[in-house]
């Protein structure tokens, strides 16, 4: 394992420290917690809290700031934080108008965040939640765990955050976030594995000529292991799987996110986007805005995901609203 770290068991604490030091104009560390919160609070606004395991940087603390999150809870690498830390996040984000939790659909995240909600209610903070499950690589099912939340979550942060900034009440903020969730689908792929610092070795092996289609952001396996394909073929495959889901149709307007998983050069993400934008044009889907870069990573995994968010007038306005965070600026 080759990492620029000190102690594998201390990476999250040190990251929070370095992040707060770098961006003290935007965010601060709540002492003795796993929480990074906004420096400038908007009073009377619904608070937006996200978080989960670390290792997805800039998710989630990179989206803390005006127009997006009020607090991010940074769990251990790939491990949901416990309810006590989520509660700290809720407290940091609460300014009286209630708090919305943006949860990615993983058993651990859902359980811990729900327990935190119960704790918050005991402290008479109004809390509601939305669960993001944008990953079409996984079958949609209520019987099983269901779909994972991946990079599309960033759009949900943006929409919920912008809505909250308008002063809308919790129910309306939740409704906008849920609309974003209904409208966003993502699909990823990987060229390499990643190594949890405390584990010290990669989560799996992939041969020099292999890739995995449908890979999750924790190195959970995907739909199939195939031979390495070209960027154009990958674009075709990811988009076709997303479109199969039926949410995005000819005539729709969408925002596109081409997300790098950690070690895929921006050059490659742009090459992919060239093909993605061609395919969407062919399909009669209009691209309103495109975001290319690292938004939701899997430590140093090579690979990418593509997300499409179907837009209507409300979502467009919320997407375009100002956001002043360290990883997302509008």
């Amino acid at each position: 394992m080759k990492k620029l770290i000190n102690d594998p068991n201390n990476v999250v604490e040190e990251m929070m420290k370095g992040m707060a030091a770098a961006h003290h104009d935007v965010l601060k560390h709540v002492p003795d917690t796993a929480v990074l919160t906004r420096v400038e609070r908007t009073a009377g606004k619904v608070g937006i809290v996200s978080g989960g395991g670390s290792g997805h940087e800039p998710s989630h603390a990179g989206f803390v700031g005006k127009g997006m999150l009020d607090a991010a809870v940074c769990g251990p690498v790939f491990t949901s934080p416990g309810p006590d830390q989520v509660l700290e996040g809720i407290k940091a984000a609460d300014s009286g108008a209630g708090v919305l939790l943006v949860i990615k659909n993983y058993s651990g995240d859902v359980m811990n965040f729900e327990m935190a909600m119960e704790l918050a209610e005991m402290e008479t903070i109004t809390v509601d939640k939305v669960i993001v499950n944008d990953d079409v690589a996984v079958e949609d099912s209520t019987y099983t765990t269901g779909r994972r939340g991946i990079a599309g979550t960033v759009f949900v942060h943006k929409i919920a955050g912008a809505k909250a900034e308008t002063g809308a009440p919790l129910a309306e903020v939740k409704a906008s976030a849920e609309k974003a969730i209904r409208n966003v689908r993502s699909m990823g792929m990987a060229l390499s594995a990643c190594t949890i610092p405390a584990a010290g070795k990669p989560g799996f092996e992939m041969a020099e000529n292999e890739m995995e289609i449908g890979m999750g952001i924790h190195g959970e396996p995907g739909i199939e292991r195939t031979l390495l394909k070209t960027a154009d073929e990958v674009a075709e495959e990811l988009i076709s799987k997303i479109l199969q889901d039926g949410v995005h149709k000819s005539g729709d307007e969408v925002a596109v996110m081409i997300n790098g998983l950690g070690s895929t050069p921006l050059m490659e993400l742009y090459i992919l986007n060239g093909k993605v934008s061609d395919i969407l044009e062919e399909k009669g889907i209009t691209v309103y805005k495109t975001f290319v870069g690292e938004y939701m990573t899997a430590i140093e995994m090579a690979g990418c995901s593509v997300s499409l968010l179907k837009l209507d007038d409300e979502l467009k306005e919320l997407l375009d609203a100002p956001a002043h965070t360290t990883a997302f600026r509008m």
């Binding site: 395991g53 949901s80 934080p81 416990g82 993983y106 058993s107 651990g108 359980m111 811990n112």
Partner: peptide, 8 residues
Amino acid sequence: KVGGASGP
């Protein structure tokens, strides 16, 4: 302190 699914 456990976190994840197994903590709860």
